[in-house]
Design a protein around this nucleic acid. Structure first.
Lengths: 128, 128
DNA sequence: CCTTGACTTGGAGTCCACTCCAGGTGGTAC
DNA sequence: GTACCACCTGGAGTGGACTCCAAGTCAAGG
């Protein structure tokens, strides 16, 4: 699969895909004889995984570290698990933050709705 | 309240507090006769609100816009409400993303746990 | 009086994650 | 055979949000 197709499927720009390779997030993709990237299914799945993790703000450095461990084979399974567990904890914490911000937003929106109603009421009175 | 105290209470650095003022996120704080910032209770509450919103990634530009409207008084209530509603929608979408990423993480961690167990099992067998 | 410490300023520097660009190659379509 | 793509590269530029710095002011303490 060529870069355009991967880009289209994943919603990650071609530039970004190449950038990910440059910084070591994706390991060098196989090339055709004239130097064009040919993404394997595994590459594509990895891109999907990266997309998912990046979409929630997981830093590139952490992902790089993780894939470096993957490259090193089974003996790094523990370490990889630890990374994921740590990231999960952070994600949960973030979601809790978001929940309380959401509560605050809901409260504020409620206050504004009240204010709008009162304003309309005033206008009705003024019109009478 | 001086900047150090506000910083300490809010967990936002003094530099950042001044930066927020520079970019118009906080409106100019009152000063003592010799130019030192004296934060009012309202200022402090605004800082708390900003902290909450920033912690979930709401951009400074949006917050600035919002506070600009607040400055303009009651006639902007509708517009402010709209901003909050829009941000709420984005927040909810983000939380959904996070939930699916969390599901994926849980799944992966499960896989690793399985792998670790099998490895241990192998080692036990090897030891026999 | 002078040092210390908290404050001030404008401007520069940093970090992250892209994003864009100029210049070049190679394969296909007319 | 030349026009047109899609691809390649290294490097520069961008945007957002800080973060740091040098140089200066002022009040209080020894």
């Amino acid at each position: 699969m060529k870069i355009s197709e991967v880009s289209e499927r994943s919603g990650i720009s071609k530039d970004t895909l190449r950038y990910y390779e440059r910084v070591g997030l994706i390991l060098p993709v196989n090339r055709t004889k004239n130097g064009i990237r040919e993404y394997s299914d595994l590459d594509v799945r990895r891109v999907e995984f990266i997309k998912c993790m990046r979409s929630v703000g997981l830093p590139i450095a952490v992902l790089s570290e993780y894939f470096k461990l993957v490259q090193q084979g089974d003996r790094t399974i523990e370490a990889r698990k630890e990374i994921l567990i740590e990231q999960r904890a952070q994600l949960i914490a973030q979601m809790e933050d978001m929940q309380s911000t959401l509560d605050m937003l809901n409260y504020k929106i409620g206050v504004y709705e009240q204010a709008v109603l009162e304003k309309e009421h005033e206008m009705v009175l003024a019109a009478v």
